[in-house]
Design a binder for these strands. Structure first.
Lengths: 104, 104
DNA sequence: TTACATTTGACACTTATTGTCAAGTAAATT
DNA sequence: AATTTACTTGACAATAAGTGTCAAATGTAA
């Protein structure tokens, strides 16, 4: 089970890029990127978008990994975690069909 | 599709309790509880626990509603919402089987 | 040693969360 | 009509969480 951090580090090394270089593209200190790769800090959505760009990763897929990481992390300690996901699924369906989409 | 706020308000009124009384049990100002019931503010886990107590609601069930609300709200605007939930399910399974449970 | 990449931790800045308080509605009693 | 009671609203304060910088420490290779 790969974390977003692991995906990023692996791909960065494959491409032979330095923390410094990737961090510059994200416009952050390399210290943060180092921590993100080691799951010591969570990336933001902006980070994810820019990481997908420079690391030539699929943006949607990386976003899915990012968000599922976040959700899994916040409910994994609950015994009702699975039920939470099931109910959340229903609610998402409901929201998506009833919501007036206000996207661009 | 009932929100946590609706569940709480309905039950509170059924029991004939006042905002003031329930809020006192949660040790917060009734203004917050009023907002929680109208989904203008989100409750905390502590609120949920104490609400289940005083309103004689099933704690786990209320917690499920609370957490699924939160998750649904934070991903409903993504088209990949369903995939996120599927991947999160896998990650939760992984975490729960590999995690050293540090609960009491 | 020097040079370079990464890691670490202390700290600062910003934004979100959680709360109080007092004034405002609204509906029921006196 | 004036009071009382329950609830709502919005301005604000306190605190917690998130996001970042910087410089020193560590590791590794030339």
């Amino acid at each position: 089970m790969e974390t977003v951090g692991q995906i990023i580090r692996t791909k960065r090394e494959t491409l032979g890029l330095l923390l410094r270089q990737v961090a510059a593209h994200l416009d952050i200190d390399q210290a943060i990127l180092s921590k993100i790769e080691r799951n010591e800090r969570k990336p933001t959505k902006t980070h994810i978008t820019k990481l997908a760009e420079i690391l030539k990763l699929d943006k949607d897929e990386l976003m899915v990994q990012f968000m599922s990481d976040k959700i899994a992390y916040e409910i994994a300690d609950e015994d009702c975690a699975n039920r939470v996901l099931k109910v959340a699924e229903k609610k998402v369906k409901y929201l998506q069909s009833h919501l007036i989409k206000t996207k661009l």
